[in-house]
């Protein structure tokens, strides 16, 4: 929770987040996304959410990024070379995003609890796998099962989508 840890990781995450958007080469974008997610995992751990931080590294920096890089390799995508930049669309998109950011910052500024520091924890959360697990298999048992079905449906859907059309 120390500012010396928070700001470097937050800046790292945001800088590489910008790099994801502005890189013209999809491979560079994907690798920037990995660094951005690692910074985010560090922020999760600074919030005493160790389980979520580790899941973030395993699922995003591991599985999802391998999927992205594999698809880039499979499709053999190159950097977009000098296609005509549509300045109107570019400026419009950035303006809409800035308007959204201004609204978010306004809401946060008016949120009373946003100016308070985090209250101290009475107990260590090093065993938060156990606490999250108890909740997941207790109160959230039904959503958990539905998520399992969703993942199964996604798997079958992916196989069906990427299969070649039978002649």
């Amino acid at each position: 929770m120390s500012p010396l840890l928070f700001w470097p990781f937050a800046l790292l995450m945001l800088m590489f987040g910008v790099a994801v958007v502005i890189n013209r080469n999809p491979v560079a974008s994907a690798l920037s996304l990995v660094v951005s997610f690692l910074g985010l995992a560090a922020l999760f751990m600074s919030l005493d959410a160790y389980f979520i931080g580790i899941i973030q590294v395993l699922v995003y920096a591991g599985a999802v990024m391998v999927l992205f890089l594999f698809i880039i390799m499979l499709l053999d995508l190159r950097a977009e070379e000098g296609r005509q930049v549509n300045w109107l669309a570019l400026i419009g998109g950035i303006a809409v995003a800035l308007a959204l950011l201004a609204q978010i910052l306004y809401v946060i500024h008016n949120l009373k609890s946003a100016h308070q520091a985090f209250p101290p924890l009475a107990r260590s959360t090093f065993d938060d796998v156990r606490n999250v697990g108890l909740l997941l298999f207790g109160s959230y048992n039904l959503p958990f099962q539905i998520i399992g079905v969703l993942v199964l449906v996604a798997t079958i859907g992916v196989v069906l989508l990427s299969r070649r059309e039978p002649r």
């Binding site: 945001l14 419009g92 978010i104």
Partner: peptide, 22 residues
């Protein structure tokens, strides 16, 4: 570090992603 700092970082990250989609 306050709650607001985390929320601001989160908001900026969301805006970056939104700009990317646009």
């Amino acid at each position: 570090v306050t709650l607001g700092d985390y929320l601001i970082v989160s908001g900026i990250l969301f805006a970056i992603g939104f700009a990317g989609v646009m």
